[in-house]
Amino acid sequence: MRDQAAKFLPLNPATLHILLALAGEDLHGYAIMQEIARQSEGSYRLGPGTLYDNLQRLLGQGVVQERGRTGDSRRRYYRLTALGRGVLTAEIARLESVIHDAKLHLQAGRPGNA
């Protein structure tokens, strides 16, 4: 699974935000957009065109799957697959590593440590 998830890395910002939005619960398209806006505190706005372009790709890759329709027949809900969760986990780990390395480099570069 880990090797399989590694093939998707690194994720582009839109994909990362979509997977993050779906990590908590199953959401329909508009809810994904709102969740992304909430998580990024309005700094990242995803349009429906970009959202469904990414969802189309993620559905094809098996990272996301459709859960089905609910009361509003026009809304479909999406959820992360096991592979999707693995991809998100791997991406977060990669980002943590980047952050760790970045902190080390920044600390090493301080004038007092020279």
Binding site: H28, G29, Y30, M33, P48, G49, Y52, D53, L55, Q56, D72, R74, R75, R76
Partner: peptide, 15 residues
């Protein structure tokens, strides 16, 4: 793409 997502995109636009 249209057959798969147009309805949802229209719903988002309406909202």
């Amino acid at each position: 793409f249209r057959e798969r997502f147009a309805e949802e995109m229209m719903a988002i636009f309406d909202e």
